[in-house]
Amino acid sequence: MSDSAKLILDGNLQVFFYDHLQEFNTRSLSPLSTETIFYSSLVMDRFGNSEKFFDQVNGRAREKILGIKLMESSQFPRELQKNALKEIAEMSLLLCGYFYDSLNKKIIDVKYYEDVGKIAYTKLNSFCPSAYDVPSFYKRMASNFSDVTMLMSLVSKKYSKETDPALPWLILRDRQVS
């Protein structure tokens, strides 16, 4: 059976994503922290259910408009604002990472979603100045946003039907993969 035809039989999607993110992270010239990889795998697991990726409007699924949600979040009470910022940041991370190629078909490019995600993580840091026993964790997520999305994109490409799994991976900045 070819690698692309194999089923993923891991009972825990978060562990599956963690293992693959960590695999690419170890090949990086500037590896990310274990906490960052762990958190990123949780994000990927959380949005493994596509229902969390869409809003329901009049009984129909509609893409979440993250820029508008970011602006609206500033009007929310503190706890709701914190939750909204986390969701916006995480969705931006996943869009720019795992679903990077799908953004090529959109009018708004990856840079927009990257900026929205970084802003949301920076604002979230003021609500949660520490996470996973790491000071300024979400501020670090904002500064490592591009590196995290690169790893997510590599995991996505690894399981894409178009990608030859036998190809060697060299991890560089700016989405250059060879």
Rank of each mutant, 00 (worst) to 15 (best):
S130G: 13
L95R: 10
K105I: 14
V110H: 07
K123T: 05
I107G: 07
Y112L: 06
Y98N: 10
L94E: 01
E114Y: 02
A131Y: 15
K123P: 08
M91I: 09
S130R: 14
M91Y: 00
L103C: 05
K123C: 05
A131I: 09
Y100A: 15
K106V: 15
C128R: 14
E90W: 02
S126R: 11
D115H: 12
L93Q: 08
Y112I: 04
Y113A: 04
Y132I: 12
V116C: 00
L93F: 01
Y98I: 07
Y113L: 06
N104W: 08
I119P: 00
K106M: 12
S92L: 02
L95K: 14
Y112M: 10
Y121P: 03
P129G: 01
D133N: 15
C128K: 13
D115P: 04
Y132G: 09
N104E: 12
C128F: 10
S126V: 15
Y112T: 08
K111D: 09
L124T: 01
S102A: 11
S92H: 01
Y98K: 09
G97V: 06
Y132D: 11
F99H: 13
Y132R: 15
L103K: 10
E90Y: 02
S130P: 13
N125P: 10
I108V: 11
Y132T: 06
Y113R: 09
L103M: 12
C128W: 10
Y132E: 15
L95E: 08
L94T: 01
S92C: 03
Y112N: 10
S92M: 05
E114R: 14
A131E: 15
P129E: 04
L103R: 03
K111I: 09
L103A: 04
I107H: 09
G97C: 09
K105E: 13
L93D: 03
V116P: 00
L93H: 00
A131C: 10
Y98G: 07
S126P: 11
E114G: 07
C96E: 05
I108Q: 07
G97A: 06
K123Q: 11
V116I: 15
E90C: 04
Y100E: 14
K118M: 02
L95D: 07
G97H: 07
N125T: 02
L103E: 03
I107T: 11
G117S: 01
E114A: 15
T122G: 04
K118P: 00
Y113V: 03
S92A: 05
P129A: 02
Y98S: 05
E114N: 07
L94N: 02
I108R: 09
I107M: 11
Y132C: 13
G117M: 01
L95C: 09
